[in-house]
């Protein structure tokens, strides 16, 4: 299961404009992370995300949100609930085609949702 999730995230991470995809547990613990760029470039954003994620995931879960997104410098951070216990986090370049990305993201979420629901 974990290797299948890893493959799905890897596929998403190489899509144009994507800088990082990560599957988080609802308590903020990263379950699987794929970075499509240099780690150094992502470090400040990841530190920021690490400090915020619990609070954000709590809000998403409490308010039953479909998605939450943030802009950070020239990056967009999206958090999309996948299942009762997992949330997909995506960091993309601001200029990336969000519409196209959304289709890929929805498909990935659906597949991961099925895997973790067992």
């Amino acid at each position: 299961m974990l290797s299948e999730i890893s493959r799905l995230l890897k596929r998403l991470a190489v899509a144009e404009g994507i800088k990082m995809v990560a599957l988080y547990r609802i308590d903020g613990v990263p379950l699987c992370v794929k970075i499509g760029t240099t780690v150094r470039e992502m470090t400040p954003v990841l530190y920021w995300l690490e400090n915020q994620i619990k609070e954000m995931l709590h809000s998403i879960s409490q308010q039953n949100l479909d998605e939450a997104s943030f802009k950070f410098n020239n990056m967009v951070i999206m958090l999309i609930p996948v299942s009762k216990t997992t949330v997909l986090g995506i960091i993309a370049r601001e200029e990336a085609s969000i519409y196209k990305l959304h289709i890929d993201i929805k498909t990935t979420c659906m597949k991961i949702g099925k895997l973790v629901a067992t």
């Binding site: 299961m1 547990r25 609802i26 308590d27 216990t85 997992t86 973790v116």
Partner: peptide, 25 residues
């Protein structure tokens, strides 16, 4: 975390002196 899905129960190694260990949950 008690929600009953695959990752509801998870373990990770915080440290393992003198040895490699797998990262992650």
């Amino acid at each position: 975390i008690g929600y009953g899905e695959a990752f509801s129960r998870g373990l990770r190694v915080i440290k393992h002196r003198g040895s490699w260990h797998a990262e992650g949950v």
